[in-house]
């Protein structure tokens, strides 16, 4: 393909992403501002000031929750994608797709009420367990890290299921048959054949989920009862009520850099893993 043609076909997309890149540059510039409320002068202070427990703690919480939720989402998304790939009836496939998309559609605040009704301290689960005499004090599933984790898993699930579902198209019956009819167990078959074939979808899904959850904002607010200070919330606090916008920009840059770092590392490791596996 000629250079001109490449450029011509890329151009419209580049044009639409330009305002976003301008916003990124703006944030980048703001993170070196000497003034907290406006771009003015040049200073490293916004970054240096991040070295306080307010920021460091939320950074650690964010990466812990984003990593855990990514692992859980992938563990749930692979079986879901496999089931969806095998469903033959069109109406059932439609129903499953719509069900999985649900967390992205219904207003998050309203969904949080749904969870409170189910898992809250006086919710359906706790009341039933108490009536059965299994517990005397309610189990706290919400308004702490477990509640946030649940919410992160729920909202990110569709982001992982669909890439993995696309990857299942690469698996043909021959693959499975060739390996599995000869007496290999279903588990072996899954780990030796299915999983490696799904890998591009899994990596793509996991990266999206990690990035999406690392910058989560509404979920920690609604299901964490504000007690789980993830970075998205901390950045909101910097913007208002702290009105430290250069600090918010610097915190944002650190979050972005670390997210991209983690994604690149994951990419590198999986590539290495593939290569060594191939060689052995």
């Amino acid at each position: 393909m000629s250079k001109t043609k490449i450029l011509l076909l890329c151009f419209p997309a580049l044009l639409t992403i330009t305002p976003f890149l301008a916003a990124c540059f703006f944030i980048f510039r703001f993170s070196f501002s000497a003034n907290q409320g406006a771009i003015e002068g040049f200073s490293f202070t916004p970054y240096l000031e991040l070295a306080d427990p307010f920021f460091i703690r939320s950074l650690l919480t964010t990466f812990k929750l984003a990593s855990f939720s990514t692992v859980i989402v992938i563990v749930l998304a692979i079986p879901l994608a496999l089931v969806m790939a095998t469903v033959q009836k069109p109406w059932l496939r439609r129903l499953l797709s719509v069900a999985i998309l649900m967390p992205m559609i219904l207003n998050l605040l309203i969904q949080s009420y749904g969870w409170i009704i189910l898992l809250g301290p006086t919710g359906v689960l706790n009341t039933s367990l108490r009536e059965l005499g299994l517990i005397s004090r309610p189990i706290m599933l919400l308004f702490n890290e477990s509640g946030v984790l649940l919410g992160l898993v729920q909202t990110a699930l569709p982001l992982a299921v669909f890439p993995i579902l696309t990857a299942t198209r690469n698996i043909s019956e021959e693959h499975i048959e060739a390996a599995c009819v000869n007496g290999a167990s279903h588990w072996r078959c899954f780990f030796d054949i299915t999983l490696p074939l799904l890998k591009p979808g899994i990596i793509s899904g996991a990266s999206i989920v990690f990035a999406y959850n690392a910058s989560a904002f509404a979920i920690p607010l609604l299901l964490g009862g504000r007690r789980v200070q993830m970075l998205g919330v901390a950045i909101r606090d910097y913007i208002s009520p702290l009105f430290n916008w250069s600090g918010a920009a610097a915190a944002g840059m650190v979050l972005i850099a670390l997210t991209i770092g983690v994604l690149a590392l994951a990419n590198y490791l999986t590539q290495r893993w593939t290569v060594t596996e191939y060689q052995s």
Binding site: F20, A23, I27, A211, S215, G232, I235, R236, G252
Partner: peptide, 21 residues
Amino acid sequence: LLFTLPLVFPLVILGIAFLLI
């Protein structure tokens, strides 16, 4: 990678940047 960036950026700060611009 470039077109994944919008996914990585925390929306709150992106919102205020867009508004300021």
